[in-house]
Design a protein around this nucleic acid. Structure first.
Lengths: 229, 229
DNA sequence: TCAAAAGTGTTTATAATACACCCATGG
DNA sequence: CCATGGGTGTATTATAAACACTTTTGA
């Protein structure tokens, strides 16, 4: 990591990624167990250093790809953390990004090779440095963002049931929602396609599958999606 | 500025400040005219480089103080801009902050000595680099923020009339508001003290002055202030 | 036949909007 | 006495919240 000589006035630039996924029950975050000092063995966000010819966005994409094998992940810059002693080894400013991915699509082997593991938000351990703070900020941002933009779909499989969608929102917002009110609100956004296909795994009756309608979504304004839930 | 030798792999860290003020009519932003190359003569946000032993917040405070002579200014980190060629001289990543100040309290002489000037938002010229983009982002953030937190008071004198407050919100949101509805909403927040004192400058009848009630504000949750205007 | 989840509408409460007249004073 | 901006309340509409029963089918 911080190999070789560290000049006195050097400030390192890092990017750390808060990666969210959803497994039909819980909102989860992908963490790696450090196999190097300092803080070896402790859990941490996936991160890396900025390269000379890339933007922060590029760096975040690269880091996300390295861990998940996925391209074109939804992500957003969160905040630049700059406490002078936040990293005990060297002055490092870390710009955090949060990303949300379909938990089924990531590359299991890559994750294993990085000693990474999914943690339910309620079971996140103490992380290195200020990474818990980063995670908290990401959760807050995700909550606000999903109230304004229907980005939650990024976390679901292509075809999903209303029940799954509701559980996702409940997990993000950490509160229970009324089934009927929820469906009415989602329907009023008018960006879902109801398929003639049922998911039979969750009940005997089966529940209709839906898809996100990207086209309809593109035709609307952001403001059309404000959902008070 | 970028004096001396610039090593190949050096990334400079800057902070740029979007400084908002309000003059009873328009929302304004404080810009400086560069007296150095590159882009000498062009308008720009006030900025500076991060020092070794300060946080980004520290740097923003320092820059704000240098230009306005004011301490304890309301400010918020906005976004880190990192396009590789955003600054033609050297690779520079700039973390932007926006600040809101009481336009009456700043130090005129300091501003003059920096070739700085207040611009109405509708009259902002082309700025250097990506500074227009920074400003746009700041305006959007300010709009959202003032809908959620009553930070707008930072822009007003200690004692202000309801009319001033309304004009401020109209300037921030760039739309006209109904006088009666506005006052009802503000009142429902219950964080103003109505004084037994009138401002006689604006009309023959005079209008009551109000103060922000910091104590009551502190006792409430952030959620209590969501105002759909 | 029953357990378990899916599906569906209406009523009530709250919040947002639209809207018009009188008041006080200095000139 | 009148022009100017200040101050006030109610009716209507839109949105959010609360709420319970029927349907389906595999075990």
């Amino acid at each position: 990591m911080y190999k070789g000589y560290i000049p006195e006035d050097k400030v390192f630039l890092a990017v750390d990624c808060i990666i969210f996924g959803f497994d039909d029950e819980d909102l989860k975050v992908l963490l790696i167990q450090r196999d190097f000092e300092p803080e070896k063995g402790k859990w941490s966000l996936m991160g890396g250093f900025l390269k000379q010819n890339e933007t922060l966005d590029d760096a975040a994409s690269r880091i996300l790809y390295r861990l998940t094998g996925m391209h074109d992940i939804y992500m957003e810059q969160l905040y630049a953390f700059s406490e002078v002693d936040r990293d005990p080894v060297a002055r490092t400013i870390s710009t955090s990004y949060y990303a949300i991915i379909n938990i089924e699509k990531h590359n299991e082997k890559l994750i294993e090779s990085h000693n990474a593991k999914w943690f339910s938000l309620s079971k996140v351990p103490n992380l290195i440095f200020d990474h818990n703070e980063m995670l908290d900020k990401a959760i807050k941002r995700l909550r606000r963002r999903t109230s304004i933009n229907p980005i939650g779909f990024e976390l679901l499989p292509e075809k999903f049931t209303m029940r799954q969608l509701q559980k996702l929102y409940e997990a993000i917002l950490d509160k229970e929602l009324d089934k009927r009110n929820f469906i009415n609100k989602i329907r009023s956004m008018d960006i879902l396609i109801k398929l003639n296909e049922k998911d039979m795994t969750s009940s005997t009756k089966g529940s209709y599958l839906h898809m996100f309608d990207q086209e309809k979504y593109n035709q609307k304004n952001d403001n059309d999606f404000y959902l008070k839930l």
